[in-house]
Computed example of a mutant assay.
Amino acid sequence: MEKQKTSVGESITECDVICGPSCGIGSRVAYGVYGVRDRKAGRIRIPQEYNGHLVINIRPGAFRSNNRLKEVILNKYISEIPEDCFAGCTHLERVIIPRKLYSIEDGAFRGCISLKEIYFGGT
């Protein structure tokens, strides 16, 4: 487990996410996030690498209805938040997204009634 400072100055522990092969980039395989191993985790950070491969996307519905999740930090390679990614995460309060993000799909945050803060690219 690795500690990292968030853009708001708090410490966060990287949570063990469930990743799997997503696509290939040239001759290299990239991974995508399918969910989180510890459904009790309140704060997660999507790692930049998993088993030596870049983590470049999140699968649709990956964190759906996770009622423990309060904060998420996406890595710099994530460029899209897919449909229903965080739908029903009723305790989600803060999301930190990379500067490179270009798309938030319909319903990505549907039902996130506690969402108060979204930090974009460190702002």
Rank of each mutant, 00 (worst) to 15 (best):
A41G: 04
G26V: 13
A30C: 14
F63P: 04
C23P: 06
R39D: 14
K76F: 03
C89M: 01
L74A: 05
S79F: 13
N57I: 07
I73D: 10
Q48G: 07
L69N: 01
G52E: 03
I46G: 00
S22K: 00
R68F: 07
P47M: 13
A41C: 00
K76C: 04
G52V: 07
I46N: 08
Q48H: 02
G52M: 09
Y77F: 15
Y31S: 11
I46M: 01
R64Q: 03
E80K: 15
A62H: 14
I78C: 08
I25N: 12
Y77K: 10
P82D: 08
N57K: 09
G20T: 00
E49V: 07
A41F: 04
I25G: 09
N66E: 07
C19V: 12
F63D: 13
R43L: 08
V29A: 06
R64F: 00
G52R: 02
P82T: 05
F63N: 09
I44G: 09
N57L: 14
R39T: 15
D84R: 10
Y31P: 08
C85N: 01
R28L: 06
K70W: 03
N67P: 05
L54P: 09
V55H: 13
C85S: 04
D38T: 07
H53D: 09
Y50K: 10
I44V: 14
N51M: 13
S27K: 11
N51Y: 05
D84T: 01
A87F: 08
G26D: 11
S27A: 03
H53F: 01
V55D: 15
